[in-house]
Structure formats: structure tokens, C-alpha cells
Design a protein around this nucleic acid. Sequence first.
RNA 1: GCCGGGGUAGCUCAGUGGUAGAGCGCGGCCCUGAAAAGGCCGGCGUGGACAGUCCGAUUCUGUCCCCCGGCA
Length: 307
Amino acid sequence: MKKAKVIFLVGPTGAGKTAVSVKLAKKIKGEIICCDSMQIYKGMDILTAQPSKKEKAAIRHHLFCIRKPSEPFSVAEYRKLALKKIDVIHRNGRVPVFTGGTGLYAQAVLDGLFSSPVEDLVLRKKLYAYAKKYGSRRLHERLKKIDPAASRKIHPNDIRRVVRAFEVYKTTGSTISDLKSAATSGGVRAKYKCRIVCLFYKNRQAQYKKINDRVEEMFESGLVDEVKRLLKVKLSKTASCALGIKQVKGLINGVYSLHDTKELLKRDTRRYAKRQISWFKRDKAIKPVAIDSQNIKKILDSVLALI
RNA sequence: GCCGGGGUAGCUCAGUGGUAGAGCGCGGCCCUGAAAAGGCCGGCGUGGACAGUCCGAUUCUGUCCCCCGGCA
């Protein structure tokens, strides 16, 4: 039996994934699935560069705007929803096209996740308090005793991972290393004919220019008002991580000038893009498509040739 | 023109009579239930120019050039 196809269109922010994804989906009878940890939130259209109404009307989009900004979200939850969508879309005889820049989400769908417990907020709070009091090094030392392998991999300063490793052990009785080396469940990579394409700029300067321009546009389209609106409710920990919220909050509170806010957001977005590139370079199955212009037709042709 | 302050990494600056550092930028990397998050690594730069003192000057002295503030 011929394997059904699943497409992933990934790449750093500002590469033009959204526009390409719509053209691509039209061409191959595809439907788009959000592969972005922030675009799953509604009410953050400018902040997350949500696809336009027109784009959404042209092609079926899934998993966009499915959570309120007050609600938390996680990779595991994402993976579950994404797998369901793949089935539904295949059943309709169409091709799922995952589009977005969250590498971890793509990986979770492709390779699955090892089974680990949901977050234990109470325990987590305690662990952070401990780390704050005695230093994360001390917590790391303790981790070394229960899970030497994990302690070797996790840097003492990487408090989140140190805490998580502890949390996993305390709630399940098994170490995160053991869980990790046990079989990961539900990866899609072998089950379907997966094609992963990453758009990236040949020239870093061109990419940074695009990012800088986009930040300016976001402000012109009403970013500040959008953030003001969002801040009226208590944002979940996840939603509040969206790039732009912290920076614009500083502007609203009078901590930064408009100019400084823009520069800060540009800088943080550049750094984010850099991290995305690092992430996508790791997976050897990812096929790179170099872009040097915004000629969508050309980009689309390159993508089509690879899938 | 005079008085004062200053010219050190792409930027902002620190420091020292024995050839220099910190933040930011920038580059590279790691990554499994917060991932647009979190973490790690990376600094030879004509120390404005020239001359002098000294065993030795980026650090002291002199001259010149440039910048900033004040007075004219």
C-alpha cells in the first residue's frame, strides 16, 4: 500500500512560510495545519503574524486560533491534536501541510514524545524556590545523584531543565533519562511519506532586514493596541511568552521609548530566528530551500520539486 | 580664540607603568509537557597621530588632529 503524504513547511520567522503554504496547498490539494506554538492562540493576530482572512478563506486552515490567551498549552497537547488532524485530512483525500516555525512541535509530530508526566505546578514551584534559595547548582548536584545521565546533559544554569528532570523523577519514580531512552510513541515519520522543507535566507543580512521591516509594520498595524487588549486578562504562562508582549508592555508602562521598544523587539526576533535556524539544521531529513528574494512563484517551484 | 571633559572591540564604556576587559551587537551551539521559552561557548583590538621620559607606555609629559560642554 502506498504511504500517504505529510508535508512540513518550516523555517525561521519572516521567511514567508505563510504565503508559500497557501500556494502550495492549492497546488497539491492540501490543507494547512499550524505548526507554531503561538499561532494556536486567538486574539494575537499581529503579534503572531497570523495568516490573513483572505489566506484562511482560500485554503482550509487547522489548529490556528484554537486557544484563548489565558489558557496554557503544551507540545504534548499539540501533538495529540495534530495527529487527529492528519487522519481527518487524509480521510478526505487531501494532504496535510504543517506550516510554522516551532521546531519542537514539528519534531513531536514526526518522532513522537516519550511518555512523561504533565507538569506538576505545586512541585515545580517548590523546586524553583529551592533553586532560588540555594542556587541552581545545588539542585543540579542533587539531580546528579538520582539521574547522573541527565545531570551530565543539562547545564547547571539551565534551571528549567533541571527542575523538569526532578519533577519527572518525583512524580513517576523513573528518571527522565530512562523515559527518554525507552521507546518514543507515535512518531509519524515512518508511517507516512513525510517531506520536510525548510525555507531559509542565503544571506543573513537580508533576513534581518526583513525582520526589522516586519517589526515596523507590526507597529503600524496596531501592535500596541493589540497588546493593551491582551493585557486586560491574565495571560497564561505560554501565551505571555509571545515575542512582543514583554517589549510592548515596557512601552505601555513607560519603561522604554517607542524607538527603544522597536529596537528591542527587532533584536529579540533576530535572536529567535537564529535559534530556529540552529534547530532546523539539526534534522538531516529536512530539505533546505534557499531564498534570496520574495518571489513566491520561484520558491514554490523549488518546494514542489522537493516533495 | 580661551577654559573644562574626552578620544580604548561594530556600539556604550571600565581599567592598568609590564602590550587590555564588561555589557550590548554579532557568530556558533544545545534543546521532549513554558519552546516566539530556557541554556552554553566565542574578544589581537594599528588603545586618535607623532615625539619624549623610562628597562618597559594604552597608562606619565609635550605637540598636533578630532569630538562634546561652557565662555567669548
